[in-house]
Design a binder for these strands. Sequence first.
DNA 1: GTAACATTGTTAAAAAAATAACAATCAAAT
DNA 2: ATTTGATTGTTATTTTTTTAACAATGTTAC
Lengths: 214, 214
Amino acid sequence: MAMMTKKLPDKTVERLSQYRRTLMEYLNTGRQHIYSHELASLLHITSVQVRRDIMLIGYSGTLRKGYDVRELINLIGRIIDIDKGMKVAVVGVGNLGSAIINYYSGKQSNISMVAAFDIDPEKIHRVYAGVNCFHVHQLREIIRQQDIDIAIVTVPPSVAIQIAEELVMSGIKGILNYTPTRINVPTHIYLEEYDMITSLEKVAYFVKKQKTTP
Amino acid sequence: MAMMTKKLPDKTVERLSQYRRTLMEYLNTGRQHIYSHELASLLHITSVQVRRDIMLIGYSGTLRKGYDVRELINLIGRIIDIDKGMKVAVVGVGNLGSAIINYYSGKQSNISMVAAFDIDPEKIHRVYAGVNCFHVHQLREIIRQQDIDIAIVTVPPSVAIQIAEELVMSGIKGILNYTPTRINVPTHIYLEEYDMITSLEKVAYFVKKQKTTP
DNA sequence: GTAACATTGTTAAAAAAATAACAATCAAAT
DNA sequence: ATTTGATTGTTATTTTTTTAACAATGTTAC
């Protein structure tokens, strides 16, 4: 009954999300159990890391059979899912925004995509993979009304800051920023930023290194 | 003359890429110098971290004026850029692939987008933001011919593994995988994977935590 | 000219994350 | 029955990353 509230390491949370999806995929093979090293190799990490993460969430596998896949999926869900579900909106329905809407629309999970925003009249009032698109003018109103928790920002870089301000005022609780523009939000809002250019330059750097220092 | 070859920390490399872009943006303000704490606040990190990273690449600012922005940009370029430039291809010209092509096409840097691949006849032989689209059948041939170094994979999850195999055989040196499917490549190929679903679930987890433990 | 101050550069410490080490357990084989 | 072997669970160690501490430096104000 007493819910585990000790906080998990950042990286463990990320991996748990990946474990779950990998395990759901794995169920298609028909197997009910999985060994730590199997799960590890599916994710390119070590088996120790898998076992350690699983230990941290308090699950135990059976010794000779490994982990019960369904049980593990369910437990991870209890840890990282939100009881009443979490609502997400995408701001900016360009290529990236559309890609994200499509990505998530398929998956059934406790996270639901409930609105999209743009300024292009062509896009407003259209429905993308089941998600309604509204004008950005309505952003504050709709986020309040529908009690949306998280916004994914995929607008052009030049307007990112302005959108962030709108989101802050709308009472959003978390932001996932995919624009290359860095935004500022109060500390009570959880902010995660990802920059594709950085990732590519990182790959380039290490490819280069590999070439020079074999 | 002797090039610095000691290897920089992973995270430092990522930040250097971000510093550079932030600094280029910063030049528009007309200012020639920047303090560590200014750059830090633009990126939501600490000034110590900025100074430490800059120390690691062997640059020195002036004491009262901070860092010379142009000099710093140039030095970062000499560190993370590739002498002869690096060629990139995008495999999968869906929404995400298109978004990425557009992203990079604007920037001028040592990384150049030189080809795209898809299987949709509608897309093949079209030009996206200056980038030619070819049929995946030609992938190996073109990567070899044009000596392409890095591939960004944005195909549907179901074909990711197959594409990865093609890429390995084509002699690619680095892969940036944006599909939720984990792929396997030999160790001599640098692989970076990013999964948007994981990021969203991470944000959801911490938003939830914030709510329960204030 | 000198005191006060803000800033850099660098070493030291702390924190976070990954890895290693290994005892415990149980199934299967002999 | 006993040994062998494979696997888990957990503590210890190492590595990586971040943060703190602080001396050095030069600019500005007085």
